[in-house]
Design a protein around this nucleic acid. Structure first.
Lengths: 171, 171
DNA sequence: GACCGACATTTGAAATGTCAAAGGTTTACG
DNA sequence: CGTAAACCTTTGACATTTCAAATGTCGGTC
């Protein structure tokens, strides 16, 4: 069995190059996904234990908290990245809990505007403060400079993705 | 109305410092979350349109594809970060579609092992190839060096988060 | 050999998620 | 005017999600 005399080095280079450069986007995506899942689950658990709220409810209330005069359901759907049909049920449950109220403006009866109640504002501001602290806590071991860098670079990812969507979506 | 004569510069510095350093972790998290949602929705749409599959099904099959001899449901639950009860239904539907089969080993009748069928392997490998291409495509505008950097730094985030979980979870 | 604690999966209730189709309303055009 | 197109929300069918409680099985101990 004659062994090939050379080619060893070349092979290493090729293999290394392949491993280094290949599927990098895929690996980044898998890591982003698992990290996001991990954080979501932790936030969800704390919201549930300490406030009896769910993460989608928190998200929705966060949008309403920024726009005190309220938002149309379609606008809420876009901002929370939740489908229309889903917003309906979400708002229904929040309304049943007295945290949100629905109003149909006089001008356009197609529209429903959701708005935080006073109770909703109070409750949300407590949750928001805790939420912010949890994140500082969870990311405590990451250098601030790295956090900034990540914020910027993930922005680049988001913008690349936005430019390559198959549907007509953009932002 | 007497205007304050100085203090302008000091204020700018203070404000800028506050904006720069504050809530950075929160902003990073919100950006991570929205970016992940955006990519997930795009992948989900393409999986549905081109293969009639869902993202959780794809995830589950990916784990089984790596372990050809199959995995116990509990192990699948850990690897996919999906709860036990959820794995049950997921595997049920995949079995109904003939993509996965369930086996109870002779030694331990508590256990159920899920395994890809031949049909499942064929179908998955087509999906996996497409999936990898989609990600390269979606992230095409991001420099490879940035992709690598993100992969590393998000690893740091994940590890910080893992060390600060409230439950007894770790990895 | 029967029980107890540990382990693995399933079940059930409630919430969230998608998509497509249906319901009203408004606007604009002929 | 009157109708068609566009717009906004809801509904309905299903899939996924979490949590807690129930079920079934194995391992050891007495």
């Amino acid at each position: 069995m004659a062994e090939p005399e050379s080619a060893t080095v070349d092979l290493e280079i090729i293999v290394q190059g392949a491993q280094e450069g290949k599927k990098l986007e895929l690996r980044l995506w898998l890591r982003m996904l698992s990290t996001t899942k991990l954080i979501s689950q932790e936030i969800r658990r704390r919201l549930r234990n300490e406030f009896g709220a769910t993460l989608p409810q928190f998200d929705l209330m966060a949008q309403l908290y920024r726009e005190r005069e309220g938002l149309r359901l379609g606008e809420l759907s876009k901002r929370t990245m939740v489908t229309n049909g889903n917003v309906t049920g979400l708002v229904e449950r929040l309304e049943a809990d007295g945290l949100v109220q629905r109003v149909t403006p006089d001008g356009d009866r197609r529209v429903t505007v959701a708005k935080l109640t006073e109770k909703g504002e109070t409750q949300f501001s407590a949750m928001a403060a805790a939420h912010e602290g949890w994140l500082r806590d969870l990311m405590a071991d990451v250098e601030p400079a790295i956090v900034s860098e990540l914020w910027r670079d993930i922005g680049a990812v988001k913008s690349s993705v936005s430019n390559h969507l198959s549907g007509a979506d953009f932002d």
